[in-house]
């Protein structure tokens, strides 16, 4: 057989939604295909496979990332959270609840990516990360609708549920803030 087409396999470890998995992967496998095909976690979606739609967004070592552009082998040892891991002890996260309350989806195909992305948006804003629409870079940003739209711009929605998505993120941000103020 032509050595050029012989696949190369490697052993890696991934901690996905809190569970450690030892896997043998083709070096060419994306994190997305590994999650979907090897681990059966089909929540993360393949919309484009080119980084352009955000449907595959997961949390990779705590940060949102396009699982379609990440090679599984390059993330040996990583902690991954997919949409399946956002709920805690059977309870939806405040953001997931807000997506339901605010009509943040229609067909739902983009929703797992929107949810993972928005989860990170709340965290990034908490850490004071700016965005392209942040006027004063030296100040801490406030998550208004313009900020939410810009920060969520890596997640496309063919159904055009954007209005509901912005509302949901805004509501979840508000809820988390009030909870933090109470704590």
């Amino acid at each position: 057989m032509d050595s050029e087409v012989t696949p190369v396999h490697t052993e890696i470890t991934l901690v996905v939604n809190g569970t450690e998995h030892r896997l043998r992967v083709d070096t060419r496998a994306s994190l997305l295909d590994t999650l979907r095909e090897d681990l059966g976690l089909t929540g993360s979606k393949k919309g484009c496979d080119h980084g352009q739609c955000g449907a595959c967004t997961v949390l990779l070592d705590g940060r949102r990332a396009n699982a379609c552009l990440a090679l599984a082998v390059a993330h040996d040892g990583a902690e991954v959270v997919t949409v399946e891991g956002l709920a805690r002890d059977g309870r939806l996260s405040p953001l997931q609840e807000a997506f339901i309350e605010q009509d943040g989806f229609q067909c739902g195909y983009c929703t797992p990516g929107q949810l993972c992305s928005a989860t990170a948006v709340l965290d990034e804003a908490d850490r004071g990360w700016p965005s392209a629409v942040t006027g004063d870079l030296s100040a801490d940003p406030v998550l208004d609708d313009d900020e939410i739209r810009e920060r969520m711009s890596g997640n496309l929605c063919r159904c055009g549920a954007y209005m509901g998505i912005v509302r949901a993120v805004r509501e979840a941000a508000r809820k988390t803030e009030t909870e933090e103020a109470r704590a």
Partner: peptide, 23 residues
């Protein structure tokens, strides 16, 4: 960087998406 070279931070933020910039 945001204080000393705001133009650089702005240029990076103008590129790609939040999830791409993380990688």
């Amino acid at each position: 960087v945001r204080e000393s070279h705001p133009m650089l931070a702005q240029a990076v933020l103008a590129g790609a998406s939040g999830q791409i910039r993380n990688l």
